[in-house]
């Protein structure tokens, strides 16, 4: 019996679950990060203190975080999604924040001088100019999350990690690869999709300049 006949169905389910985890948590993480990034960029004097503290959280191993969350929330998908979303926040947050801070002051002054309100300046000038950096953050976040989502299997919640864990436990290389290869391909495809997204979001006028 071939590998796919035995594991095919389970593999497809695992891919779907994995993708589901990634998409949900990256979406949540992205929205939270974007809002936080914008807020922090309005108060750079405090952000200088807040950002390093947030980056400490980044250094807590995912396995510990998921484990702790599991103790409080139990074996539900929300545990995985919350944990992954928290990790997805940081790359986007950092890139949103620096992207916004890197907008040259002359553009902000010109926007003010043209009678744009602070909100208009943010949405029509600052965010578009920071968009290349934000998209880069989103790409990093997504790629990381694809690999971190493997940890879901650790608390028995499926995804491609299941194959990897069983493979390691039973010393079965085929199973390890069956988990690893699809997640690698997923990371590549998602990253390409984000490039396409970037084409729509990053203003045309910025591409010639870089």
């Amino acid at each position: 019996m071939s590998f796919f006949e035995t594991y095919g169905d389970r593999l497809i389910t695992a891919i779907q679950v994995h993708l589901c985890y990634v998409l949900t948590s990256v979406t949540i993480g992205f929205v939270v990060a974007l809002i936080l990034g914008i807020l922090l960029s309005r108060i750079p004097q405090y952000a200088k203190i807040i950002m390093p503290i947030l980056s400490i959280f980044q250094t807590i191993p995912g396995i510990v975080f998921i484990g702790v969350l599991f103790l409080y929330l139990g074996m539900i998908p929300a545990t995985v999604i919350i944990a992954l979303a928290v990790y997805a926040i940081f790359p986007v947050l950092k890139n949103t924040y620096t992207g916004l801070l890197d907008v040259k002051p002359e553009y902000i002054e010109a926007a003010k001088g043209c009678g744009m309100s602070p909100l208009q300046t943010l949405f029509e000038v600052e965010l578009p100019l920071a968009s290349p950096s934000i998209i880069t953050g989103l790409r990093m976040s997504t790629i990381y999350t694809v690999s971190w989502a493997v940890l879901a299997a650790m608390i028995g919640l499926g995804g491609l990690g299941e194959f990897i864990y069983i493979g390691i436990a039973s010393n079965n290389n085929e199973l390890i690869l069956a988990g690893a290869i699809p997640s690698a391909i997923m990371a590549i495809i998602l990253s390409l999709l984000i490039d396409v997204l970037g084409r729509f979001i990053i203003p045309k006028g910025l591409r010639g300049a870089k």
Binding site: Y107, V125, L129, P203, G205, L206
Partner: peptide, 8 residues
């Protein structure tokens, strides 16, 4: 510095 918005 002119300040034309490069995204427009």
């Amino acid at each position: 510095q002119i300040g034309l918005f490069p995204n427009m």
